[in-house]
Design a protein around this nucleic acid. Structure first.
Lengths: 147, 147
DNA sequence: AGCCGATAGTGCAGGAATGAACGATATGTC
DNA sequence: GACATATCGTTCATTCCTGCACTATCGGCT
């Protein structure tokens, strides 16, 4: 859970294992984004909703940033948009005057459910093109890359 | 050569092969970006310089967009920044009054050389952690994913 | 020659991310 | 209790990218 986005910056030269790897990741992310988008969500928004739904309670924005591995100002803006969409509500924390809690609205909970359903479906479709051999060897390669 | 960027958007949940794949790609891209950044370039800028250097002649912005697989307005802005950096120069095409040619400046050519050197080094460092088995199986998995 | 449609570049708005600077609260220490 | 410090959220500037709308130019056709 968590992670970065792929707006889609161009990088130099692709005929290298590393670049085909990045290109493939980009294609996969684009498929997920496209699958989720009909529900009115982006992957970034869905990720925030997912953290909130997972926690089952309002969370301080700092927590969201930590769990998303991103800077706080990004969460500020993301929550701005989610609030404008009516999917999340800002509340001030009772105990700590500094922190602001993000709370899932009923509409946000529904959007989360729909989004995750669409995402899971796309995820399965993507994995299904890999035979078990490909999957296991991919796992070991990924492990080596992120060691 | 070509491709998207990884600003770093968050996506939901990671304990799935698909998401570890995206996370790994993100990490790899971040390493490349970090390797190139000391030369004052981003991967996006380096990619444009690379296309121009490769062509060995000024190219219309539309061509750049096509080779980068991105929209024209993106190239307009990228070239704006590159021009501000003094790495590229805009010229109007002699034959076609509509098109604008992007030309590599001497400084741009030097930046390209430095950037590509840094990139190649990082690329090698990344691939070196993969043993030949991992590399070949990764290739086949990528092929399956982008078929 | 005159018009029409396609192509080229740009401008503008908006989404997603970063990093720096800031004001407001909490806290630990003297 | 007062002050220094750390934490929290926001704001602003900037990058990278998309899509839409607009202007200018080029070609082809009649």
């Amino acid at each position: 859970m968590s992670k970065r986005q792929r707006k889609r910056a161009r990088r130099p030269a692709a005929d290298s294992l590393v670049f085909s790897f990045l290109d493939a990741a980009e294609a996969v992310e684009a498929r997920l984004e496209a699958a989720v988008s009909p529900t009115g969500l982006s992957l970034a928004k869905l990720a925030v909703l997912h953290i909130l739904a997972d926690a089952k309670e309002p969370l301080p924005l700092s927590d969201l940033a930590a769990r998303q591995h991103c800077v706080r100002s990004n969460i500020t803006q993301l929550v701005d948009r989610l609030e404008k969409d009516g999917l999340v509500h800002r509340r001030t924390a009772p105990d700590d005057g500094r922190s602001v809690l993000a709370e899932l609205t009923p509409s946000g909970a529904r959007a989360h459910a729909r989004g995750m359903r669409a995402l899971a479906q796309a995820r399965r479709a993507i994995v299904s093109v890999l035979d078990p051999d490909d999957a296991t060897s991919l796992k070991s390669a990924l492990k080596a890359l992120t060691s």
